[in-house]
Structure formats: structure tokens, C-alpha cells
């Protein structure tokens, strides 16, 4: 069933192409030990404040692309620079600091089921050594930002899918990251809720955070008309501003 999404309010482009890229990949390749090529010669630069869609069929290389950015994986060739850090030169001890500059949300939310919404967000601060004063100040701010301040004491099972994703977004923002990576954030949500999440991501992007969203949702991409990176069999086949999900020419 296809449902037409309401068109988003046009968000002004905040990206500056002159600024130092917040994400830069130069001739990046990833080949697994079994010979399978996950990415081949990918070069891309994303400026601060951009909202970018990463599209492609399953197995096209989107997950590998994202894993490279959070340094969950290293390229077999090329260079990846994120938030000013060359990931190949980054020492292991520096990786946590890099990850605090990157927020990430997933299709399956990945909330801790035995913790409330408040505790899930607070957990992300506590495990990075934040003081209790910071936790008390920051968590309500974030839950307020995502519109869940009245549900802070609810467990994930007591929240809808959209609300759970909002908690996940609040958690991803605890360290005020430069980049927010959303890996199929609407994949488990109904169309209306999906759009609410997109509105939230737009709002976060307007506050200056670079958003990279991997998605299969054509309607969202077509409605938003933002920059699109399209991967096919590990190759970047399209990098187009103000684009649709599919090539239009």
C-alpha cells in the first residue's frame, strides 16, 4: 500500500559548500577477506549543516558506508575524515570521542527495555562520565526537544514506535553531535509517524546538525528534495542536490 505523505515545510538549505566538509571520503574502498567488494572508489564531501539522503537497494553498501563513519570498520583503501579526524590515523582511545561527535539512530530504535525514556537518554550521558547535574539538566531539555517530556517515566514497551524513535533521537543528541546518522529511521513506522520523525530531523538539521539519513522510503526522499547519494553494488552512482529517489533524467 502506498500512502502519500504530506509535503514537508521547505527547509532552507543551511549547508555551505565553502565550509570544511564535516564528512569527507576520498577514493574509499572496502573489500572483505572473501573478496566481496562492499564499497569501491567512493568519494564524497558533506558540508556542515547539510541534510543528505543515502539511498540504494539492500546490499548496495549503505551499512558499510555508515560503519566507516562511526569507525566501526576501516576502509581497505582511501581516506575517511569525519569531524576533522582522519579515521585511519585515529588511535583506538580517541574513537569514543569521535563517536560523541556523531549521533546515530536505527530502524529498530535499540532502546534498553528495562529503562524508562528518561533513563535511556540519561544512560548515554552516564556512560561517558557526565555529572549528575549535567544529566538532570540535559535529559529534560532533549526530551522536550523531541516532544516527550510528558513520557519521561514510560518504559519503551509503553511507548508507540514513533515515540520510541524520538527517545532514540534524544539519546543520539546527548553530546550535541555535529552529525546525526539515521539508518532507516522510519523503516518500522507508519507513514504519518514517519513524517513526524522527518519533521523532527528537519528541526534538528535547522539547528545546525548535519543529517545523513539512509532510507528506502522513496516518498520521503522525493518530497524533501535534498541532496541524494545513491549507491549501487558498492559504487556511488549518483550525488545530486535537490534530487529525487530515482534518477529523473
Amino acid at each position: 500500500m502506498t500512502t502519500t505523505l504530506p509535503r514537508p515545510t521547505a527547509a532552507p538549505a543551511t549547508a555551505s559548500t565553502l565550509a570544511e566538509p564535516v564528512i569527507s571520503m576520498v577514493d574509499v574502498g572496502v573489500t572483505y577477506p572473501n573478496g566481496k567488494v562492499a564499497l569501491a572508489d567512493v568519494s564524497v564531501a558533506i558540508a556542515p549543516g547539510e541534510y543528505v539522503f543515502l539511498v540504494g537497494a539492500s546490499g548496495a553498501g549503505k551499512t558499510t558506508f555508515i560503519r566507516l563513519l562511526i569507525r566501526d570498520q576501516l576502509p581497505t583503501s582511501g581516506r575517511v575524515v569525519v569531524a576533522g579526524k582522519d579515521l585511519l590515523k585515529l588511535r583506538r582511545g580517541q574513537v569514543p570521542k569521535l563517536r560523541r561527535r556523531i549521533g546515530i539512530v536505527f530502524q529498530d530504535f535499540r532502546l534498553l527495555p528495562n529503562k524508562t525514556a528518561y533513563e535511556n537518554v540519561a544512560f548515554a550521558l552516564e556512560v561517558t562520565g557526565a555529572s549528575s547535574a549535567t544529566v538532570r539538566r540535559r535529559v529534560p531539555q532533549l526530551l522536550n526537544l523531541v516532544g516527550l517530556h510528558e513520557h519521561d517515566h514510560h518504559l519503551p514497551t509503553q511507548l508507540s514506535g514513533g515515540e520510541q524513535q524520538r527517545v532514540a533521537i534524544a539519546r543520539a543528541l546527548v553530546h550535541d553531535p555535529a552529525i546525526l546518522i539515521a539508518d532507516e529511521p522510519t523503516g518500522n513506522l507508519d507513514p504519518v509517524t514517519s513524517w513526524e520523525i522527518i519533521q523532527l530531523l528537519i528541526q534538528i538539521n535547522e539547528l545546525g546538525t548535519t543529517v545523513l539519513m539512509a532510507t528506502h522510503n522513496q516518498e520521503i526522499v522525493n518530497a524533501m528534495r535534498r541532496r541524494v547519494l545513491a549507491l549501487e553494488h558498492g559504487t556511488l552512482v549518483r550525488d545530486e542536490a535537490g534530487a529525487a529517489y530515482e534518477r529523473e533524467y
Partner: peptide, 17 residues
């Protein structure tokens, strides 16, 4: 494992894990 995964992603250091 789930908690550890979240800890890694939000930037917890190895010591905290």
C-alpha cells in the same frame, strides 16, 4: 550485549565498558 552496543555508539570509553 545490547547495552554494550549502545555504550559504544554513544561514545563510552573502553574503561566504562
Amino acid at each position: 550485549a545490547g547495552e554494550i552496543e549502545i555504550m559504544r555508539l554513544v561514545g563510552a570509553s573502553d574503561s566504562f565498558i
